[in-house]
Amino acid sequence: MNISTIVFLLLSLMAVGSALMMIISKNPVHSVLWLILVFFAISGHYILLNAQFLAVVNIIVYAGAIMVLFLFVVMLMNLNADTEPIKNYRMQLVGICTGGTLLLLLVLITNRMDVEQLVETNAGNAGLIKNLGMVLFKQYVLPFEISSVLFLSAMIGAVVIGRKEEPIDQNPNS
């Protein structure tokens, strides 16, 4: 059992445990904080796979930007454990059974694969910023530019949706 296997097991335990805690915890703020821990564990996996650019982007974009946006919205709505929506225990049981069956099925299917491939850890230079940047700005420059248009439209859409409804002015000339 070498060092990368131990690191993999620790990070996996952290990711799965934090993900479970995210579902279980009643307070939405705690859920967001547990999900940030999951993202840190996944970033650790990226570092283990030598995908350093993705590890840094995952922390900056997901844990830094998106989760802060979630926290802002949760705190803006003043949600806490008291405002937890009403429960339906039968639906919960059905949901857990469905998820467990799906997991069992997927694990059985993937166990039937006869690939015995190994994954390269702590090696390879494909994930370094230099190589990824060369590919991104040469081969994939058109999708990169299109994604900027996507961001612009998302920004305009968010502003339009989140705008306060103004009362319709009956007399626009006044």
Binding site: V16, I23, P28, V74, Q92, I96, T98, L103, L106
Partner: peptide, 20 residues
């Protein structure tokens, strides 16, 4: 990845809070 994905699916099915 399967375990994480299934936890996400179970969360969508079980929780009633739109943010969760």
């Amino acid at each position: 990845s399967l375990v994480l994905f299934t936890i996400g699916i179970v969360g969508v099915l079980v929780r009633r809070n739109a943010i969760i």
